[in-house]
Write a protein that binds this DNA or RNA. Sequence first.
DNA 1: TCCAATAAGTTGTCATAGCAACTTTTCTGT
DNA 2: ACAGAAAAGTTGCTATGACAACTTATTGGA
Lengths: 144, 144
Amino acid sequence: MRLNFYDYISIFIHQTDLTLTNYIKSKLAPFNLAPEQNLIMMLLWEKDGLTQNEIAEKLKKDKTNIARMVFNLEQKGFIRRQCRENDRRSLKVYLTEEGENLGHSITKITEEFNSLVCKGITEEELKDVRRILGKMCKNVHEDS
Amino acid sequence: MRLNFYDYISIFIHQTDLTLTNYIKSKLAPFNLAPEQNLIMMLLWEKDGLTQNEIAEKLKKDKTNIARMVFNLEQKGFIRRQCRENDRRSLKVYLTEEGENLGHSITKITEEFNSLVCKGITEEELKDVRRILGKMCKNVHEDS
DNA sequence: TCCAATAAGTTGTCATAGCAACTTTTCTGT
DNA sequence: ACAGAAAAGTTGCTATGACAACTTATTGGA
């Protein structure tokens, strides 16, 4: 029996991700911040002075894209990049004052977003979702 | 208490989606088919002769991107577009013979992919994931 | 010590994703 | 019948995401 379009769980997950990303995108837009740029900022608000490589590892993303996103954040004036003195290959990323200040507004928004997404969903259910999605990732990693 | 990076369920979902998409991308690459192009093809294998607008609605995507993806599929020779006789605004999309034949190989691959993703996960758990992710989408839609 | 391997970033290319603005065609209300 | 709205597609723009190929800098082994 052939699977129908919506029987594929990966398609369902993909569409869920698009829905959530689009929503937070609209909330961040007034601050001139895109969703993935925000992820980088979130890391920096937790801990300043990461290298681009460290950011890429934490976000499990290609360093190429990190370089471009960090470049854009620099253009926007939220961060600045500085060469490390002991390793001239790598660049450390620091918040500017503007970037630092942004944190207060954005943290509020992202936590509200998380609350909205999880509204009416129990802690137990969230744990289950994490466990099952984690299992799916493990399944495909083991096959690669 | 400030949320940590990985406490955000949306980030977890996003990273899961990337993992799954990347895997199927590598499986489809030998057939010169990208993941989202494949979604369009899947619709056409189910039912030929959809308009671009109908495809956009089914995939819940912007018609802009559908137009570009369909254009690429046409370049690759998998589909052809034809003006409707009774409405010259809209284009119907038909499989070519090559596109039709592709269906046999690809259906096998996507069903294997779905099995791999769901390995060790019960039907009950899958239903739960669908229900909870669906609830999340509903939550953000209600707020828009 | 010096050559090769490795590491960090950058640039180019392709595919996705959405928004705004536009053309062409069709429909609708008067 | 005709003006204006709406509908289908297209083009331009920005952002994300992965891969390949490249430069520059550092490290490690013979």
